[in-house]
Computed example of a mutant assay.
Amino acid sequence: MSALFTPHQLGPLTLPNRIVMAPLTRNRAGAGNVPTELMAEYYGQRAEAGLIVAEATQVCPEGQGYEATPGIHSDAQIAGWKRVTDTVHARGGRIFLQLWHVGRVSHVSLQPNGQKPVAPSAIRADTKTFVGGEFVDVSEPRALELQEIPGIVAAYRTGAANAIAAGFDGVEIHGANGYLLDQFLRDGSNRRDDLYGGSIENRARLMLQVAQAVAGEIGPRRTGIRLSPVTPANDARDSNPQPLFEYVVEQLDRLDLVYIHLIEGQTGGDRNFGAGFDYGALRRRFRGSWIVNNGYSAEMAETAIGSGYADLVAFGRSFISNPDLVTRLRRRAPLAKANRATFYGGGAEGYTDYPTLEAAE
């Protein structure tokens, strides 16, 4: 599996291997949605990854959709994340922050003043969110007014600047999994009749404006984006995703972003969901680094890298229970199994207490 352990140049960063830790929501932020010392230890334990993409982090209070998820819009949050990045860098790692606005995937109890979540259109998603220690139905959203949209773009721009101030090496824009930017992309959630609805060009407008704003703020070689063309996550639906995502990737390529992080199939599930979608057509439209994700084994990852299909492979759940995943893959050692009961919320149990291979031996 030698190809997985070769260096890769990602903008200004030299990654020592091709293994990316995917962003994973763990619901362990402290009061004020501030990252904690426990989170710093969690990410520091996983610093041998070629690149860590830290968990989805809301760019504004209205962007929150789940309890105890971190933000990047207050001074305290920036300071909390600085402890995380300092720990990762001290252990030789590299770390990006995923910038997030959930849009309609939220609950009124998480919104400022109990207001309705915002969305491209007033269509409630058939999905759930995590509130009060359990999963509950999301709330009915309201459609964003046209004059509010520049404020969304500005929140992402400020979030990117705050991420750099917190010591991150770059950011990943969350454009996947049925959250706000993805909601605008898809005709199943976007019924607008203005500049942000209708045609593919209009539905892609917000995502591209956000990407341009973020790249303009911190530089395109520190800016990546995550896409999930066919996933049904959070009620994401589109009648014809192939031309939609081919257009989006062509336009993102023009912005010279450092990478696209692509979820193949159903997020966290069936890789063959949406069979027939041509991912290669997207790959051929983008000159930057290409990260693939979803259910990759070490052997599949090796093939993807060795064939040139991908530059990097992101692993998610296996990083939860294997802080030294890179070492285990290199040694072809067994992987520890994760305790699903501790995925969302809680403390150190199922978070920072998974032993390394060396400790286990």
Rank of each mutant, 00 (worst) to 15 (best):
L4C: 08
F5Q: 09
L10K: 07
G11M: 06
G11R: 08
L13Y: 07
P16A: 14
A22S: 15
A22P: 01
G32Y: 10
G32W: 07
T36H: 04
T36E: 04
E37N: 07
M39A: 03
Y43W: 05
G50P: 11
G50F: 06
E55C: 11
A56E: 11
V59C: 07
E62I: 02
G63H: 07
Q64T: 14
E67P: 10
A68Y: 09
T69N: 09
P70V: 05
P70H: 13
P70N: 13
I72K: 12
S74W: 09
S74V: 09
A76P: 06
I78H: 10
W81H: 15
T85W: 05
G92W: 07
Q98H: 04
V105H: 01
Q111R: 06
K116V: 06
K116D: 12
P117W: 05
V118R: 03
S121N: 11
R124H: 03
D126Y: 04
V136F: 06
V136T: 12
E140M: 14
E140D: 14
E140C: 01
L144W: 02
E145F: 05
L146A: 15
L146H: 10
A154L: 10
A155G: 02
A165Y: 02
G167K: 08
G170H: 06
V171L: 02
I173G: 06
I173R: 05
G175D: 12
G178P: 06
L181K: 02
D182L: 03
D182T: 03
L185T: 00
R191Y: 00
L195H: 04
L195S: 12
L195I: 00
Y196H: 03
I200K: 04
E201Y: 01
N202S: 10
N202D: 10
R203N: 04
A204H: 00
M207E: 06
L208S: 07
Q209D: 14
P220W: 01
R221F: 00
R222T: 03
R222M: 02
R222Q: 15
G224F: 00
S228R: 06
N234E: 05
D235F: 05
R237S: 09
D238W: 08
N240L: 06
Q242S: 08
F245V: 01
F245K: 00
E246D: 14
V248M: 09
V248K: 01
Q251H: 09
H261S: 02
L262P: 01
R271M: 11
F277V: 12
A281G: 12
R284A: 14
S289L: 00
N293Y: 03
S297T: 15
A298E: 09
E299W: 05
G306S: 14
Y309F: 12
F315P: 01
G316S: 14
G316L: 05
N322D: 14
P323M: 09
D324N: 13
R328K: 11
R331A: 15
A336S: 14
A336W: 09
A336V: 12
K337R: 15
K337M: 13
F343Q: 11
G346A: 11
G346W: 12
A348I: 13
Y351F: 15
Y351A: 14
Y351M: 12
T352I: 15
Y354G: 14
T356R: 14
